[in-house]
Amino acid sequence: MENYESQAYQQPTNDNGNYMVSKLPNTTGSLVLGILSIICCCSGVIGLVLGIIGLMLANKDIKLYQTNPRQYTGIETTNTARILNIIGLVISALSLIYSIYSIMAVGGWNAYYETIQESIRQAQAAQQ
Score class of each variant (00 low, 15 high):
residue 4 Y to H: 06
residue 5 E to N: 11
residue 6 S to R: 12
residue 6 S to H: 08
residue 8 A to H: 07
residue 9 Y to Q: 13
residue 10 Q to H: 05
residue 15 D to E: 10
residue 16 N to K: 08
residue 18 N to Q: 10
residue 20 M to R: 04
residue 25 P to Y: 08
residue 25 P to F: 09
residue 26 N to V: 06
residue 26 N to K: 02
residue 28 T to V: 09
residue 28 T to G: 05
residue 31 L to H: 03
residue 33 L to N: 07
residue 36 L to M: 11
residue 37 S to T: 02
residue 39 I to M: 15
residue 39 I to D: 11
residue 39 I to P: 01
residue 40 C to F: 10
residue 41 C to S: 13
residue 45 V to Y: 05
residue 48 L to W: 05
residue 49 V to W: 03
residue 50 L to Q: 12
residue 51 G to Q: 08
residue 51 G to Y: 11
residue 52 I to E: 13
residue 57 L to D: 11
residue 57 L to R: 11
residue 58 A to Y: 10
residue 59 N to G: 14
residue 60 K to F: 09
residue 63 K to S: 11
residue 63 K to Y: 13
residue 63 K to V: 09
residue 66 Q to C: 04
residue 66 Q to K: 12
residue 68 N to S: 14
residue 72 Y to H: 10
residue 75 I to N: 12
residue 75 I to A: 15
residue 76 E to S: 15
residue 79 N to F: 05
residue 81 A to V: 10
residue 82 R to F: 15
residue 82 R to G: 11
residue 82 R to P: 13
residue 85 N to C: 15
residue 87 I to E: 06
residue 89 L to W: 04
residue 90 V to E: 07
residue 93 A to D: 06
residue 93 A to Y: 10
residue 94 L to M: 12
residue 95 S to T: 06
residue 100 I to D: 00
residue 102 S to G: 01
residue 103 I to C: 09
residue 105 A to I: 00
residue 105 A to Y: 00
residue 105 A to L: 02
residue 105 A to S: 04
residue 107 G to I: 02
residue 108 G to E: 01
residue 109 W to L: 02
residue 114 E to Y: 00
residue 121 R to G: 00
residue 121 R to K: 09
residue 124 Q to C: 01
residue 126 A to C: 01
residue 127 Q to I: 01
residue 128 Q to R: 06
